[in-house]
Amino acid sequence: MKKKPAPLRRSMFMRLGFNFYDVAVTIFCVAFGLLCFYPLWYCLVASVMPYEEYVKGGLMLWFKGIDLQYYIQIFSTKVYTNSLLVSAVKTVLATALSVLVTSAMAYAVSKVHIRGMKLINALVVFNLFFAGGLIPQYMLYKSLHLTGNFWVMVLPGTLNISYFIIMRNYFSFSVSRELEDAAMIDGCNEVGIFFRIVMPLSRGMIAAVTLFIAVINWNDYYNYMMFIGNKTKLQPFAWVLHRMLTDKSLMNQVRNGAASLGFTLPPPMALRMATIICATLPIVIIYPFIQPYFTKGMTLGAVKE
C-alpha cells in the first residue's frame, strides 16, 4: 500500500522512516534472535567439530574444521533412514486428518447460537482435564485392533482439544456474523460460506495450527512406545532420537558401527548433537515455506469487502 506523507509535527527521523523506537525494537529482536539461535548453532558446530577440537570444549562459536563423520555414521545406520520415512508418512497423515477434523468441528461449534453446539463444546473441553489412563486405553486400542498397528500413531490424537479451543475462538471472533449474513443474502449457503469465505479468511490461522500439529506429530513417540513397542519398521524418528538420547544400546550400536567404519569411538554428546541436527533439519527446511502464511496479512481482500 502507498505511504501517506507524514504530518509535519513529526521529527526528522520519522520522516526518514526510522526512529529510536524502530532501533530499540530491532536491537531487542536481533538480540533475542541471536540468543535463541546460539543453542542450535552450538549443536551444529559441535557435531561437525573434529574430535581433537571437540574434547577441548569451549563455546563452539565457529567451525574449526569440518568433519562429517557423525552424519556418515548416522546415515549408515539403517534404522535412521527407515524411521525418517515412517515419521514423514505418519506426520502428513495425522496432521491432515487432525487439522481437517479439528478445524471443521471448531468452526461448527463456534456457532454457539445453533442448538446443541454449546453442549458439544462442553463435552470437548471437558477432555482437556480428564483422561482414562493407560490400561483402559490399551484395552480400547486392542479391541480396535490398533495395537501393533501403524494407525495407532495416527488416529487417537485426531481431535486436538487445545487447538480446537483456539480455532473455535478464532472463528467466532474473526469471522463476523455480518459477513456471513451478507454472504447469505448473496445466495451462499452454509457450505458455500465455509469453503468460500471462512476457509480463505482463516488461512493464516490454519497454517499456524497445521505447523503446530505437524510438529506435535513429528515429535510424538509415546503411542509407538506403549502400543507398538517392538516393530522395527514402524519406529518413528522421534523414538529413534529419544533412544539416542537416553538409551545406551542404540548409542553403542552407532558408536560401534563407527568403530567398524574405521572412526575413533565418537563421544556420545557429539553424536547426540548430530542426531538433534538431523531431527531439526526437516522442520527448519519446511518452515520458511509455511512462514509467509501466518506473518503476512493474508486476509486483506476478504475483510475489506
Partner: peptide
C-alpha cells in the same frame, strides 16, 4: 529473527 527464535523449541530438554 523469527526463524531463529523458533529454533530452540526443537531441541529436546536433554540437550
Amino acid at each position: 529473527v523469527q526463524t531463529a527464535a523458533y529454533l530452540p523449541y526443537f531441541l529436546s530438554w536433554v540437550i
